[in-house]
Structures are given as structure tokens and as C-alpha cells.
């Protein structure tokens, strides 16, 4: 319907039809839009894949160590910091 969609906040000042991208040929708006949607999906997929991986043990053991180093058992003087960092 509307061939112009000026209310779109996502494209900011960038003239959509100058095909400055190395892709070359200008394509119609629905195609361009479909491509961008597909790219968006793949980007999220790439990211989500790592997010959903189990976190390696190193990460958690690091925080556990930080915890132990912080409270050596009793409250009070934590002035002596046992071998905390390099």
C-alpha cells in the first residue's frame, strides 16, 4: 500500500535508496525489508547460540574464589588479602 514509510524510526536519516552498500542493485522495499529481517534473525541466532551454551566451570570457580578471598571465615579485619591477584 503505502510506498513510503517515513514514520519508521529505525532508519535514521539514511536515504534508503542510495545503494551505497556493495550489494549494488537497488531492490524493491519488501525485498530489502525481508532481507534485513532475515539478517536480523541470523544475528540473533548466532548470539543466542552462545548464550544458551553451558557456562564453562572456570567462570563459576572464579567467582567462588572471589567469594572466599573476600570473607576468610571471620568478620572484621580483611586487611590481609591472601594472594588475590597478580
Amino acid at each position: 500500500m503505502a510506498n513510503k514509510n517515513d514514520g519508521d524510526s529505525s532508519k535514521d536519516g539514511a536515504p534508503p535508496k542510495d545503494a551505497e552498500s556493495s550489494g549494488g542493485k537497488a531492490v524493491d522495499a519488501p525485498t530489502a525489508r525481508r532481507r534485513q529481517e532475515a539478517i536480523g534473525r541470523r544475528l540473533r541466532q548466532m548470539y543466542e547460540e552462545v548464550v544458551s551454551e553451558p557456562v564453562p566451570d572456570d567462570f563459576m570457580s572464579f567467582l567462588q574464589q572471589a567469594d572466599k578471598a573476600k570473607k576468610p571465615g571471620s568478620s572484621g579485619g580483611s586487611s590481609t588479602d591472601p594472594s588475590s591477584d597478580t
Binding site: E20, S21, S22, G23, Q36, I39
Partner: peptide, 21 residues
């Protein structure tokens, strides 16, 4: 914020071009 917006939009177009290639 405006800088981010324009970077994202340029990146989208560039990526499309690269993937086409």
C-alpha cells in the same frame, strides 16, 4: 544514541552487501 543508530543502519546495509557478495 544517534551515533549508535547511524552505525547500526550503516552496518545493516554493509552486511547485506557483503552477504550478497
Amino acid at each position: 544514541v544517534g551515533t549508535i543508530k547511524s552505525r547500526v543502519s550503516r552496518a545493516r546495509r554493509a552486511l547485506e552487501g557483503l552477504l550478497l557478495e
